[in-house]
């Protein structure tokens, strides 16, 4: 079964290059090479190929999902180092359990999000945050000024701090829904709650963020008006 899927992958161009291509005799732009593939392999097909030890499938699965999982962890945990550790743990689990993955039982992307979210929540519970709204970084200056890039970084830091100050489950809900773009059913499934509970978590999270970021919202509006004029 896995061998057949591997053949599908190879037929789709994964795991090998043509000899002409390797010899550089038939150079093709990336977009043209992409057109040759009839169909991208599904996540299930990639996972089956990963279980067979196919290097190209491992790389393809990482290309497809690693950044999204890292971004989820980064916004849940508030720092890059912890986010990389979580993303690494998620993919090591994929490598370990690939041979036991049952296609059709669940969406692979949802499973990845669930594992990553649970790992983040575990970390947050072990290291209860000491962040507080009052400890959020101060804006260097209220003037719009010429340093717009610096302002953007400061605003980003304030939004990040406000996000990190949310209770864990509210943060998870808004990260999954707003930042990862998952639907309410998928978010509820990952968090193990009802869709009504997801909506409640999201409402409370956004209300808290509005309070925390009231000043920043005004700053953003003001700088938008300045740049528009």
């Amino acid at each position: 079964m896995a061998d057949r899927r591997l053949e599908i992958l190879r037929g789709a161009g994964f795991g090998r290059r043509s000899r002409l291509d390797e010899a550089g005799m038939f150079p093709m732009p990336a977009h043209a090479r992409g057109n040759i593939r009839l169909e991208q392999p599904s996540d299930d097909e990639l996972v089956a190929a990963v279980a067979s030890g196919d290097e190209a499938a491992c790389r393809a699965l990482m290309d497809r999902h690693l950044t999204r999982i890292l971004v989820l962890a980064r916004r849940m945990l508030g720092n890059q180092a912890d986010a990389e550790e979580v993303a690494q743990e998620v993919f090591l689990r994929v490598w370990t359990h690939a041979d036991r993955w049952e296609p059709g039982q669940a969406r692979f992307g949802t499973w990845l999000h669930r594992v990553a979210t649970n790992l983040c929540l575990d970390r947050l519970r072990k290291n209860r945050p000491t962040d507080d709204i009052d400890e959020m970084p101060d804006l260097a200056s209220g003037d719009p000024g010429p340093h717009r890039q610096l302002e953007q970084r400061e605003l980003a830091a304030r939004v990040d701090a406000a996000l990190q100050a949310l209770p864990e489950r509210q943060r998870a809900a808004i990260v999954l829904s707003h930042y990862q773009g998952l639907g309410n059913l998928e978010t509820a499934d990952i968090l193990g709650v009802t869709v009504e509970a997801v909506e409640s978590l999201l409402s409370r999270a956004r209300r808290q963020l509005r309070l925390s970021l009231a000043t920043e919202k005004d700053d953003l509006l003001r700088s938008d008006k300045v740049s528009a004029s």
Partner: peptide, 14 residues
């Protein structure tokens, strides 16, 4: 407008 502010949260790349 509030969504735009939220979207400023840092993302990171692997």
């Amino acid at each position: 407008r509030f969504d735009a502010l939220l979207d400023m949260a840092p993302a990171g790349v692997p």
